Amino acid sequence: MLNTTFRLALLVALSFVPSLALAQSATPGSSLKKDILYRSEEGLDDYAKKQCRLDVHYPNTKGFATVVWFHGGGLTGGDKAIPQYMRDQGYAVVSANYRHNPQVNAPVYIEDAAAAVAWTFENIESFGGDPEKIFVSGHSAGGYLTSMVTLDKRWLAAHKIDADRIAGAIPHSGHTITHFTVRKERGIDRLKVVVDDLAPLNHVRKDAPPLLLTTGDRNMEMTGRYEENAYLWRMFKEAGHPDCKLRELEGFNHGNMVQPAALLMKTFVEAHSSGK
């Protein structure tokens, strides 16, 4: 848990973030490309063509790191967006949409997320980014997708990409058990815990990329969200993973923990980009 001193420092820092980000976004130091189709294979229906798109916000420099960002919404809704406080932070943001339930069922969400990450590996260099500095992150459902694409190597392997090329994963308040929407698709009660091949917990491995797990306050979060992330962290420790950290943001709930978590993510991205 974050101690009180760190919590106060974090709150003070956050009070400056919105104005700083707004000022920086008005400068000519970055560019934005919108609605790029990241799946181009034959046979895509109209819904896939609508949803399988991404935006790229990137610095007008060379060799920058990139965060592939997945929105939350329970795998049933939401829309790609790049939060103002994540812009002009020294890294690019690739914000990707994906198809939702009930139009599709699992594992289509994960397949779309993997396709967006693969697109980034294949194309970010043309924007000036370094393909060896690609991070994956997202909030809630997006955190779940982050973990699945990073830990279960089969999804990126379908695009001939080794998931271990990911420089780091930062799932914010994501499920580590099988997602509640996937359980609902199968007629399983939301309070029944399932850990199967669609659960990040089922893919703990010593050689996974570096991980930063963040959640809101355990007493203010969604049911069990801190505890399941704590269990994932413990299993990585038991597996001998050298670089998995867990940060509980005391005083923040599931919805408002993203902005302070983004400060931790920035530090994580900088630390894991410096030697690459």
Results as ranks from 00 to 15, higher is better:
Gly216Glu: 06
Thr223Trp: 12
Thr178Gly: 08
Lys184Asp: 05
His203Thr: 01
Asp197Lys: 12
Cys244Asp: 03
Arg165Gly: 00
Leu213Trp: 10
Ile170Ser: 00
Glu227Cys: 05
Glu185Arg: 05
Ala239Lys: 14
Asn202Asp: 02
Met222Asn: 11
Tyr226His: 15
Gly174Trp: 04
Thr214Ala: 00
Leu201Met: 11
Met220Ser: 08
Asp189Met: 03
Phe236Met: 15
Arg190Glu: 14
Ser173Gly: 08
Asn202Thr: 04
Leu198Ser: 07
Gly216Ile: 11
Thr223Pro: 12
Ala167Val: 00
Pro200Tyr: 09
Thr176Asn: 01
Asp189His: 14
Arg186Pro: 02
His172Gln: 09
Leu211Lys: 12
Asp243Tyr: 10
Asp164Ile: 05
Glu238Cys: 00
Thr176Ala: 07
Pro171Leu: 02
Pro210Phe: 08
Glu248Tyr: 09
Leu201Gly: 03
Leu201Lys: 09
Lys237Asn: 10
Lys192Met: 07
Thr181Ala: 06
Leu191Ile: 03
Glu228Ser: 07
Leu201Phe: 03
Ile177Val: 14
Pro242Leu: 07
Gly224Ala: 14
Val194Met: 10
Arg165Ile: 00
Arg165Asp: 02
Lys245Thr: 10
Asn202Met: 00
Glu227Thr: 12
His203Ala: 01
Leu249Gln: 05
Arg183Phe: 05
Ala199Arg: 08
His203Trp: 09
Val204Lys: 00
Tyr231Trp: 09
Asp196Glu: 04
Gly187Leu: 04
Gly240His: 13
Met222Ile: 11
Val182Leu: 13
Met222Arg: 13
Leu232Ala: 14
Lys237Ile: 06
Ala208His: 11
Thr223Ala: 10
Leu211His: 13
